[in-house]
């Protein structure tokens, strides 16, 4: 299963490293990354393969959310299908 990780917040050093580290910890393979700065807001979107993840989805989600809270970022991880079904006919 593939999931989309989004990170939105104020730009600072180490966001990509922070999120990637969590992915490594859970054996999640990052397949694509795109990032942009909108005004001074940092938006990063990662497509990750979580089929070989070594922990339940909920735990990964919790850790990412917690990372977001600590760094004043909004971090979400959601199943890829939600975006495909909403935006592609």
């Amino acid at each position: 299963m593939r999931a989309v990780i989004t990170v939105i917040g104020k730009d600072m050093v180490g966001i990509l490293a922070g999120v990637s580290n969590i992915c490594v910890k859970y054996n999640v393979n990052i397949m694509e990354v795109s990032q942009s700065i909108m005004q001074d807001l940092f938006a990063m979107i990662m497509l990750a393969d979580i089929s070989d993840s070594n922990a339940p989805f909920a735990q990964l989600k919790e850790e990412l959310t917690e990372y977001g809270k600590q760094n004043a970022l909004s971090v979400h991880i959601m199943h890829e299908d939600i975006f495909n079904s909403m935006h592609r006919v």
């Binding site: 989309v4 979107i45 497509l47 890829e80 939600i82 975006f83 935006h87």
Partner: peptide
């Protein structure tokens, strides 16, 4: 890959 704006739109719909 999915369009960035589409992804942000979905998240915005759910969050806000």
């Amino acid at each position: 890959m999915l369009n960035t704006n589409d992804i942000l739109e979905t998240i915005h719909m759910i969050q806000d």
